[in-house]
Computed example of a mutant assay.
Amino acid sequence: MKVTFVLPVASLSGGIRVIAIYAKALSERGHEVTLVSQPYPSPSLRRKIKSFITGKGWPVTPKIPSHLDGLGLDHRIIDKYRPMLESDIPDADVVVATWWETAEWVNALSAAKGVKMYFIQGHEVFPYCPVDRVVATYKMPLHKITISKWLVDLMRVEYGESDVVLVSNSVDHQQFFSVPRGKQHRPTIGILYHEEPLKGVDVALQVISLLEEKFPTLRVIAFGSFAATGVFNLPANLEFYLSPDQDSIRDLYSQCDVWLSASRSEGFNLTAIEAMACRTPLVSTRTGWPVEAISCFKNGVLADIDDIDALARGVEHILTLDESEWREVSEMAFQTVASSSWESSARLFETALDNAFVSNLPDQRAR
Protein backbone atom coordinates (compact mmCIF):
# COMPACT_ATOMS: atom_id res chain seq x y z
CA MET A 1 0.00 0.00 0.00
CA LYS A 2 0.88 3.64 -0.36
CA VAL A 3 0.45 5.20 3.09
CA THR A 4 0.62 8.91 3.97
CA PHE A 5 0.84 10.23 7.52
CA VAL A 6 -0.26 13.86 7.95
CA LEU A 7 1.48 15.43 10.94
CA PRO A 8 1.61 18.74 12.76
CA VAL A 9 5.15 19.91 13.60
CA ALA A 10 7.46 16.88 13.90
CA SER A 11 9.22 16.93 17.26
CA LEU A 12 10.54 14.74 20.07
CA SER A 13 7.05 14.25 21.56
CA GLY A 14 5.83 10.80 22.49
CA GLY A 15 3.09 10.98 19.86
CA ILE A 16 5.58 11.65 17.06
CA ARG A 17 7.73 8.82 18.37
CA VAL A 18 4.85 6.34 18.05
CA ILE A 19 4.13 7.53 14.51
CA ALA A 20 7.82 7.15 13.63
CA ILE A 21 7.82 3.57 14.93
CA TYR A 22 4.81 2.60 12.81
CA ALA A 23 6.02 4.47 9.72
CA LYS A 24 9.38 2.69 9.90
CA ALA A 25 7.75 -0.70 10.48
CA LEU A 26 5.37 -0.25 7.54
CA SER A 27 8.26 0.78 5.31
CA GLU A 28 10.24 -2.31 6.33
CA ARG A 29 7.19 -4.42 5.50
CA GLY A 30 7.28 -3.17 1.91
CA HIS A 31 4.73 -0.35 2.05
CA GLU A 32 5.46 3.00 0.41
CA VAL A 33 5.30 5.45 3.31
CA THR A 34 5.29 9.25 3.13
CA LEU A 35 5.08 11.65 6.07
CA VAL A 36 4.01 15.26 5.54
CA SER A 37 4.47 17.75 8.38
CA GLN A 38 4.44 21.45 9.13
CA PRO A 39 7.64 23.36 9.86
CA TYR A 40 8.13 25.00 13.23
CA PRO A 41 6.17 28.29 13.20
CA SER A 42 8.16 31.44 12.49
CA PRO A 43 8.12 34.23 15.09
CA SER A 44 5.53 36.91 14.35
CA LEU A 45 6.68 40.10 12.63
CA ARG A 46 5.99 42.01 15.84
CA ARG A 47 8.20 39.64 17.82
CA LYS A 48 10.95 39.88 15.21
CA ILE A 49 10.91 43.68 15.32
CA LYS A 50 10.91 43.69 19.12
CA SER A 51 13.86 41.33 19.17
CA PHE A 52 15.76 43.51 16.70
CA ILE A 53 15.17 46.85 18.41
CA THR A 54 16.08 45.43 21.83
CA GLY A 55 19.46 44.34 20.50
CA LYS A 56 18.76 40.61 20.35
CA GLY A 57 19.02 40.45 16.58
CA TRP A 58 16.60 39.33 13.90
CA PRO A 59 15.28 35.93 15.05
CA VAL A 60 15.31 32.97 12.70
CA THR A 61 12.91 30.06 12.70
CA PRO A 62 14.52 27.19 14.62
CA LYS A 63 14.81 23.73 13.12
CA ILE A 64 13.89 21.37 15.92
CA PRO A 65 14.89 17.70 16.09
CA SER A 66 12.28 14.97 15.79
CA HIS A 67 11.91 11.23 16.15
CA LEU A 68 11.72 11.04 12.34
CA ASP A 69 15.33 12.16 11.94
CA GLY A 70 17.74 9.57 10.59
CA LEU A 71 15.14 6.90 9.81
CA GLY A 72 15.52 7.10 6.05
CA LEU A 73 11.81 7.76 5.56
CA ASP A 74 10.22 10.06 2.99
CA HIS A 75 9.48 12.99 5.29
CA ARG A 76 8.24 16.11 3.52
CA ILE A 77 7.99 19.44 5.35
CA ILE A 78 5.69 21.98 3.71
CA ASP A 79 6.87 25.50 2.86
CA LYS A 80 5.53 27.28 5.95
CA TYR A 81 3.41 26.83 9.06
CA ARG A 82 -0.13 26.76 7.65
CA PRO A 83 -3.07 24.41 7.06
CA MET A 84 -2.25 21.70 4.54
CA LEU A 85 -3.78 21.76 1.10
CA GLU A 86 -4.73 19.05 -1.38
CA SER A 87 -1.56 19.81 -3.32
CA ASP A 88 0.63 19.09 -0.27
CA ILE A 89 -0.57 15.49 0.06
CA PRO A 90 0.51 12.78 -2.40
CA ASP A 91 -2.00 10.35 -3.90
CA ALA A 92 -2.06 7.15 -1.84
CA ASP A 93 -4.13 4.17 -0.77
CA VAL A 94 -4.46 5.32 2.84
CA VAL A 95 -3.99 8.75 4.45
CA VAL A 96 -3.68 9.00 8.24
CA ALA A 97 -4.51 12.06 10.34
CA THR A 98 -2.51 12.20 13.58
CA TRP A 99 -3.87 15.25 15.48
CA TRP A 100 -7.26 17.01 15.60
CA GLU A 101 -6.21 19.74 13.17
CA THR A 102 -4.76 17.25 10.70
CA ALA A 103 -8.10 15.40 10.90
CA GLU A 104 -9.80 18.52 9.54
CA TRP A 105 -7.36 18.63 6.64
CA VAL A 106 -7.63 14.90 5.90
CA ASN A 107 -11.41 14.98 6.05
CA ALA A 108 -11.41 17.65 3.31
CA LEU A 109 -9.14 15.69 0.93
CA SER A 110 -10.35 14.08 -2.28
CA ALA A 111 -10.64 10.30 -2.59
CA ALA A 112 -7.42 10.28 -4.64
CA LYS A 113 -5.42 10.84 -1.46
CA GLY A 114 -6.54 7.51 -0.02
CA VAL A 115 -8.91 5.99 2.50
CA LYS A 116 -9.14 8.44 5.39
CA MET A 117 -7.89 7.29 8.79
CA TYR A 118 -7.60 9.06 12.14
CA PHE A 119 -4.92 7.89 14.59
CA ILE A 120 -6.15 9.20 17.95
CA GLN A 121 -3.44 9.34 20.62
CA GLY A 122 -5.32 11.41 23.18
CA HIS A 123 -8.54 13.21 23.96
CA GLU A 124 -7.38 16.57 22.63
CA VAL A 125 -9.98 18.81 24.29
CA PHE A 126 -7.19 20.85 25.84
CA PRO A 127 -7.62 24.42 27.14
CA TYR A 128 -5.40 25.80 24.37
CA CYS A 129 -7.41 24.10 21.59
CA PRO A 130 -10.76 25.14 20.05
CA VAL A 131 -12.84 22.50 21.80
CA ASP A 132 -15.81 22.62 19.42
CA ARG A 133 -13.58 21.91 16.45
CA VAL A 134 -11.73 19.15 18.29
CA VAL A 135 -14.98 17.45 19.27
CA ALA A 136 -16.22 17.68 15.69
CA THR A 137 -13.19 15.69 14.44
CA TYR A 138 -14.16 12.69 16.58
CA LYS A 139 -17.50 12.58 14.77
CA MET A 140 -16.03 12.78 11.28
CA PRO A 141 -16.47 9.75 8.97
CA LEU A 142 -12.84 8.65 9.32
CA HIS A 143 -11.65 5.13 10.15
CA LYS A 144 -10.33 5.46 13.69
CA ILE A 145 -7.43 3.79 15.48
CA THR A 146 -6.53 4.55 19.08
CA ILE A 147 -3.94 3.49 21.63
CA SER A 148 -5.67 2.61 24.90
CA LYS A 149 -8.87 1.07 26.20
CA TRP A 150 -10.05 4.25 27.88
CA LEU A 151 -9.95 6.06 24.54
CA VAL A 152 -11.91 3.25 22.86
CA ASP A 153 -14.54 3.53 25.59
CA LEU A 154 -14.56 7.33 25.37
CA MET A 155 -15.07 7.29 21.60
CA ARG A 156 -18.01 4.89 22.02
CA VAL A 157 -19.70 6.60 24.97
CA GLU A 158 -19.08 10.27 24.18
CA TYR A 159 -19.06 10.25 20.39
CA GLY A 160 -21.06 7.19 19.35
CA GLU A 161 -18.06 5.64 17.58
CA SER A 162 -18.39 1.88 18.12
CA ASP A 163 -15.96 0.76 15.42
CA VAL A 164 -12.67 2.11 16.79
CA VAL A 165 -9.64 -0.18 16.44
CA LEU A 166 -7.42 -0.58 19.51
CA VAL A 167 -3.68 -0.77 18.83
CA SER A 168 -1.99 -0.40 22.18
CA ASN A 169 1.37 1.30 22.45
CA SER A 170 4.23 -0.91 23.48
CA VAL A 171 7.87 -0.97 24.54
CA ASP A 172 11.08 -2.08 22.84
CA HIS A 173 12.63 -4.62 25.21
CA GLN A 174 15.96 -4.43 23.40
CA GLN A 175 16.02 -0.72 24.21
CA PHE A 176 14.42 -0.65 27.67
CA PHE A 177 15.42 -3.44 30.03
CA SER A 178 17.17 -4.21 33.28
CA VAL A 179 18.48 -7.27 35.01
CA PRO A 180 16.81 -8.05 38.36
CA ARG A 181 18.11 -5.48 40.82
CA GLY A 182 17.71 -4.18 44.33
CA LYS A 183 16.93 -0.79 45.83
CA GLN A 184 19.32 2.11 45.44
CA HIS A 185 21.65 2.99 48.30
CA ARG A 186 20.07 6.44 48.21
CA PRO A 187 16.24 6.58 47.73
CA THR A 188 15.66 7.73 44.14
CA ILE A 189 12.59 9.02 42.28
CA GLY A 190 12.36 9.60 38.52
CA ILE A 191 10.07 12.01 36.67
CA LEU A 192 9.54 13.31 33.15
CA TYR A 193 10.11 17.08 33.12
CA HIS A 194 7.68 18.95 30.87
CA GLU A 195 6.27 22.36 31.71
CA GLU A 196 2.97 21.77 29.88
CA PRO A 197 0.36 21.93 32.72
CA LEU A 198 -1.26 18.66 31.64
CA LYS A 199 1.95 16.81 32.51
CA GLY A 200 1.57 17.82 36.16
CA VAL A 201 5.21 18.58 36.92
CA ASP A 202 3.99 21.19 39.41
CA VAL A 203 2.25 18.39 41.32
CA ALA A 204 5.29 16.13 41.09
CA LEU A 205 7.49 18.86 42.57
CA GLN A 206 5.07 19.31 45.47
CA VAL A 207 5.12 15.56 46.06
CA ILE A 208 8.92 15.67 46.12
CA SER A 209 8.84 18.55 48.60
CA LEU A 210 6.69 16.49 50.97
CA LEU A 211 8.94 13.46 50.64
CA GLU A 212 12.12 15.42 51.36
CA GLU A 213 10.96 15.78 54.96
CA LYS A 214 10.94 11.98 55.41
CA PHE A 215 13.83 11.14 53.10
CA PRO A 216 16.53 13.77 53.65
CA THR A 217 18.93 12.04 51.21
CA LEU A 218 16.29 11.79 48.47
CA ARG A 219 17.64 11.86 44.92
CA VAL A 220 15.45 13.02 42.02
CA ILE A 221 16.21 12.17 38.38
CA ALA A 222 14.40 14.08 35.63
CA PHE A 223 14.72 14.22 31.87
CA GLY A 224 12.88 16.11 29.16
CA SER A 225 13.04 17.44 25.61
CA PHE A 226 13.05 21.10 26.67
CA ALA A 227 15.26 22.92 29.14
CA ALA A 228 13.72 24.27 32.33
CA THR A 229 12.69 27.91 31.85
CA GLY A 230 12.67 28.92 35.49
CA VAL A 231 8.89 28.83 35.80
CA PHE A 232 9.32 26.29 38.61
CA ASN A 233 11.74 26.36 41.53
CA LEU A 234 13.59 23.09 41.14
CA PRO A 235 14.88 21.31 44.23
CA ALA A 236 18.62 21.17 44.78
CA ASN A 237 18.52 17.36 44.73
CA LEU A 238 17.07 17.23 41.18
CA GLU A 239 19.37 16.03 38.41
CA PHE A 240 18.07 17.20 35.02
CA TYR A 241 19.06 15.55 31.72
CA LEU A 242 18.15 17.38 28.51
CA SER A 243 17.15 15.15 25.56
CA PRO A 244 19.24 12.14 26.61
CA ASP A 245 19.73 9.38 24.04
CA GLN A 246 17.71 6.21 24.38
CA ASP A 247 20.48 4.19 26.03
CA SER A 248 20.91 6.93 28.60
CA ILE A 249 17.17 6.98 29.28
CA ARG A 250 17.25 3.26 30.02
CA ASP A 251 20.07 3.85 32.48
CA LEU A 252 18.12 6.66 34.16
CA TYR A 253 15.03 4.48 34.58
CA SER A 254 17.22 1.74 36.04
CA GLN A 255 18.66 4.10 38.66
CA CYS A 256 15.20 4.77 40.12
CA ASP A 257 13.40 3.04 42.97
CA VAL A 258 10.10 4.48 41.74
CA TRP A 259 8.87 6.35 38.68
CA LEU A 260 6.40 9.15 39.44
CA SER A 261 3.83 10.30 36.87
CA ALA A 262 1.57 13.14 38.06
CA SER A 263 -0.08 13.84 34.70
CA ARG A 264 -3.52 15.42 34.49
CA SER A 265 -4.13 13.83 31.09
CA GLU A 266 -2.42 11.06 29.13
CA GLY A 267 -3.46 9.26 26.01
CA PHE A 268 -1.13 6.41 26.95
CA ASN A 269 2.05 7.32 28.95
CA LEU A 270 5.11 5.87 27.26
CA THR A 271 7.51 6.72 30.08
CA ALA A 272 5.41 4.62 32.45
CA ILE A 273 5.66 1.45 30.37
CA GLU A 274 9.36 2.05 29.65
CA ALA A 275 10.17 2.54 33.33
CA MET A 276 8.36 -0.67 34.22
CA ALA A 277 10.29 -2.52 31.50
CA CYS A 278 13.40 -1.38 33.40
CA ARG A 279 11.96 -2.96 36.56
CA THR A 280 10.97 0.34 38.15
CA PRO A 281 7.64 0.37 40.05
CA LEU A 282 5.22 3.12 39.01
CA VAL A 283 3.24 5.64 41.05
CA SER A 284 0.80 7.40 38.76
CA THR A 285 -2.36 9.42 38.57
CA ARG A 286 -5.39 7.66 37.12
CA THR A 287 -4.74 8.69 33.53
CA GLY A 288 -3.97 6.74 30.37
CA TRP A 289 -2.48 3.25 30.28
CA PRO A 290 -1.51 3.05 33.98
CA VAL A 291 -5.21 2.74 34.85
CA GLU A 292 -5.24 -0.53 32.89
CA ALA A 293 -1.85 -1.77 34.03
CA ILE A 294 -1.40 -0.93 37.70
CA SER A 295 -2.66 -3.22 40.43
CA CYS A 296 -2.23 -1.11 43.53
CA PHE A 297 0.62 -2.13 45.85
CA LYS A 298 1.54 -5.07 43.59
CA ASN A 299 3.36 -3.40 40.69
CA GLY A 300 2.84 0.24 41.65
CA VAL A 301 0.26 2.64 43.07
CA LEU A 302 -2.52 4.74 41.52
CA ALA A 303 -3.82 8.05 42.88
CA ASP A 304 -6.41 10.58 41.79
CA ILE A 305 -5.41 13.51 39.60
CA ASP A 306 -3.93 16.41 41.61
CA ASP A 307 -4.00 14.38 44.84
CA ILE A 308 -0.58 15.37 46.12
CA ASP A 309 -0.93 13.57 49.46
CA ALA A 310 -1.99 10.29 47.87
CA LEU A 311 0.86 10.41 45.36
CA ALA A 312 3.32 11.13 48.18
CA ARG A 313 1.94 8.21 50.19
CA GLY A 314 2.30 5.96 47.14
CA VAL A 315 5.92 6.91 46.59
CA GLU A 316 6.63 6.59 50.33
CA HIS A 317 5.13 3.11 50.28
CA ILE A 318 7.51 2.00 47.51
CA LEU A 319 10.55 3.66 49.08
CA THR A 320 9.96 2.11 52.50
CA LEU A 321 9.61 -1.47 51.28
CA ASP A 322 12.38 -3.70 52.52
CA GLU A 323 14.78 -5.18 49.98
CA SER A 324 12.87 -8.40 49.29
CA GLU A 325 9.50 -6.64 49.14
CA TRP A 326 10.85 -4.04 46.71
CA ARG A 327 12.34 -6.74 44.49
CA GLU A 328 8.94 -8.46 44.38
CA VAL A 329 7.15 -5.26 43.30
CA SER A 330 9.93 -4.54 40.80
CA GLU A 331 9.54 -8.01 39.28
CA MET A 332 5.75 -7.57 39.07
CA ALA A 333 6.24 -4.25 37.28
CA PHE A 334 8.51 -5.96 34.76
CA GLN A 335 6.16 -8.91 34.24
CA THR A 336 3.27 -6.51 33.59
CA VAL A 337 4.92 -5.34 30.37
CA ALA A 338 7.05 -8.37 29.49
CA SER A 339 4.77 -9.64 26.70
CA SER A 340 4.32 -6.23 25.08
CA SER A 341 6.14 -5.63 21.78
CA TRP A 342 6.16 -3.00 19.06
CA GLU A 343 6.37 -5.78 16.47
CA SER A 344 2.97 -7.05 17.54
CA SER A 345 1.51 -3.54 17.69
CA ALA A 346 2.87 -2.74 14.23
CA ARG A 347 1.18 -5.83 12.79
CA LEU A 348 -2.13 -4.73 14.32
CA PHE A 349 -1.66 -1.21 12.94
CA GLU A 350 -0.91 -2.60 9.48
CA THR A 351 -3.99 -4.84 9.66
CA ALA A 352 -6.18 -1.86 10.61
CA LEU A 353 -4.95 0.10 7.58
CA ASP A 354 -5.38 -2.88 5.29
CA ASN A 355 -8.92 -3.60 6.53
CA ALA A 356 -9.94 0.02 6.03
CA PHE A 357 -8.49 0.01 2.52
CA VAL A 358 -10.20 -3.25 1.56
CA SER A 359 -13.54 -2.10 2.98
CA ASN A 360 -13.38 0.92 0.69
CA LEU A 361 -12.38 -0.89 -2.49
CA PRO A 362 -15.72 -0.14 -4.27
CA ASP A 363 -15.09 3.55 -3.58
CA GLN A 364 -11.54 3.18 -4.86
CA ARG A 365 -12.77 1.71 -8.16
CA ALA A 366 -15.29 4.50 -8.55
CA ARG A 367 -12.85 7.34 -8.19
Rank of each mutant, 00 (worst) to 15 (best):
207 V>D: 09
222 A>D: 00
178 S>K: 10
208 I>E: 05
211 L>Y: 13
218 L>G: 02
209 S>T: 13
210 L>P: 00
188 T>K: 12
189 I>A: 04
182 G>S: 10
193 Y>R: 10
174 Q>M: 04
220 V>C: 01
226 F>S: 03
223 F>L: 11
174 Q>E: 15
232 F>S: 00
225 S>E: 01
177 F>M: 04
201 V>R: 04
177 F>C: 07
187 P>N: 07
192 L>K: 04
211 L>V: 09
207 V>E: 10
201 V>Y: 10
202 D>Y: 07
205 L>Y: 12
200 G>T: 15
210 L>V: 03
220 V>L: 02
195 E>P: 08
212 E>W: 03
201 V>F: 09
230 G>M: 12
187 P>T: 05
206 Q>M: 10
201 V>C: 13
234 L>P: 05
188 T>D: 04
175 Q>V: 15
202 D>N: 15
179 V>K: 09
202 D>R: 12
183 K>C: 07
194 H>T: 07
219 R>V: 09
202 D>M: 06
190 G>R: 05
181 R>T: 15
203 V>T: 15
194 H>E: 11
221 I>M: 05
234 L>N: 10
223 F>I: 11
180 P>F: 01
207 V>P: 07
218 L>S: 03
213 E>V: 15
189 I>W: 14
191 I>F: 10
201 V>D: 01
205 L>P: 09
222 A>G: 03
179 V>F: 13
217 T>C: 03
225 S>R: 10
234 L>A: 13
213 E>P: 00
203 V>L: 02
224 G>K: 08
186 R>H: 06
197 P>H: 13
193 Y>V: 05
214 K>L: 05
182 G>Q: 09
190 G>S: 09
196 E>M: 11
218 L>Q: 06
216 P>L: 12
181 R>H: 15
201 V>L: 12
204 A>I: 13
212 E>T: 09
184 Q>Y: 03
209 S>G: 07
212 E>P: 00
188 T>W: 05
226 F>L: 12
183 K>R: 15
222 A>F: 03
197 P>D: 03
176 F>L: 08
204 A>N: 08
175 Q>M: 11
208 I>Y: 13
184 Q>T: 13
184 Q>V: 08
220 V>H: 01
229 T>W: 08
194 H>A: 12
210 L>D: 11
224 G>V: 02
183 K>I: 02
182 G>H: 09
198 L>Y: 11
175 Q>P: 00
185 H>R: 05
175 Q>W: 07
212 E>L: 02
175 Q>L: 08
209 S>Q: 15
214 K>H: 06
185 H>V: 09
223 F>G: 03
184 Q>C: 11
186 R>C: 09
180 P>A: 00
210 L>N: 13
216 P>D: 02
226 F>A: 05
233 N>D: 14
181 R>Y: 06
218 L>A: 06
212 E>M: 13
176 F>M: 10
224 G>A: 03
213 E>Q: 08
233 N>W: 02
206 Q>G: 05
176 F>Q: 01
188 T>R: 13
215 F>N: 06
206 Q>F: 04
222 A>K: 02
217 T>L: 06
